[in-house]
């Protein structure tokens, strides 16, 4: 997949929604992820193990992938994942192969100090189609500086 053409911050005020990101949980994606994580847990690989544990009949997505969808949603919003200062999440339910999840968020606060970065505090979530929360939490993200204008005393050139 190619990078998005033009990253742009389309939300930057309290109450603004962050652009949703819909993803489909893929069993095939869990296999390389298990290798990258060095995670031997068979619940990500073998549906028979999931059934044996009474957790369902499809493999269960790795938690770091669920967090990764939130990072991706934030990266598409800001254009730069390096602007995410913190991500504080709670894992509330499992996501299963084949499910469609939506990552989203809303800006709850914007700190705009005179001598520092503008920081947006956002409620973020990853929800399944049936409305179930998979992950819920808070992200703190640096917003781009406001454009200066002559009235601000900034350089108008």
């Amino acid at each position: 997949m190619r990078p998005p053409a033009a990253p742009a911050v389309t939300a930057e005020a309290v109450g603004d929604d962050l652009p949703d990101l819909a993803v489909t949980v893929r069993a095939e994606a869990m296999k390389p992820t298990a290798l990258l994580l060095r995670d031997p847990n068979p619940i990500h690989l073998d549906p028979a193990v999931v059934r044996g544990l009474g957790l369902g009949d499809r493999v269960i997505n790795q938690g770091p992938l669920n967090v990764g969808y939130l990072w991706e949603m934030l990266a598409r919003w800001t254009g730069d994942a390096g602007l995410v200062r913190s991500l504080d999440v709670r894992f509330t339910s499992n996501a299963f192969a084949g499910e469609v999840l939506v990552a989203g968020g809303v800006i709850e606060d914007v700190a705009d100090p005179a001598d520092g970065d503008r920081i947006a505090t956002c409620a973020v979530w990853l929800c399944a189609e049936d409305g179930r929360d998979v992950v819920r939490g808070t992200a703190r993200v640096v917003l781009p500086p406001r454009p200066t204008t002559p009235d601000d005393g900034g350089d108008p050139r």
Binding site: P42, V67, R85, D88, V89, F91
Partner: peptide, 13 residues
């Protein structure tokens, strides 16, 4: 394979 699950995670970058 004991059913260990993630609880919470606070990531500071």
């Amino acid at each position: 394979d004991d059913g260990v699950m993630f609880g919470e995670c606070r990531i500071e970058q």
